[in-house]
Amino acid sequence: MKTLLQSLPFITFLMFFFAACEKDSDNENLVPDEPQDTIVWEPVNQINPEVITNLFVDGGELKVLTKNFYYQLNLNDFSAESHYVGNFSESWATVLNDELFVKIESSWIFVFNANNPEKYTGIDLHDHLDDFGKFFFPSAWLGNVIAINENNVFLTVYRPLLDGVFAAEPRLLLFSAELDAEGNVSVENIISSSIDEGYVFGDLSGVYTCGEDFIISLNPYTYKVTSQGEWTRVFDGRIFNFIPWDGKLLGFGDDDLLISDDGGESWEPLSYNLPPGYRPWQHKGFVHDNQLLIWDTYTISLLDLSGSEGHLKTFCNEGLEPGPGKYIHRIVLTEEYAFVGTGQGLYYKPLEDFLESKIDN
Rank of each mutant, 00 (worst) to 15 (best):
R233W: 12
G263V: 07
S260T: 06
T232E: 15
K248S: 14
T222R: 03
L257D: 00
W281E: 11
P220Y: 09
P275M: 10
N219V: 08
L274K: 01
T222S: 14
S260H: 03
R233V: 11
E230F: 12
R233I: 10
E230W: 08
H283Q: 13
P280H: 04
D255V: 07
K224E: 12
P276M: 07
H283K: 13
F242W: 09
G251T: 05
G285K: 01
P244A: 07
P269D: 08
S271I: 09
G229Q: 07
V287E: 06
N241I: 01
D254M: 10
K248R: 15
Y221Q: 04
W267C: 04
L249H: 01
W231V: 06
R238S: 13
W267K: 02
Y221A: 11
D256C: 07
P280N: 06
L257E: 00
L249S: 02
K284W: 11
L257Y: 03
D289Y: 08
Y272M: 10
F235H: 15
W231L: 04
D236K: 14
F235Y: 15
L218E: 03
W231T: 11
G264D: 04
G237H: 08
G264W: 03
E265I: 07
Q282I: 11
H288I: 08
G237Q: 08
D256Q: 14
G247C: 12
Y278N: 02
H283G: 01
N219Y: 13
L270N: 00
N219K: 12
P220E: 14
G251A: 07
L258S: 05
T222H: 08
W231F: 15
G251D: 06
P276E: 14
F252V: 01
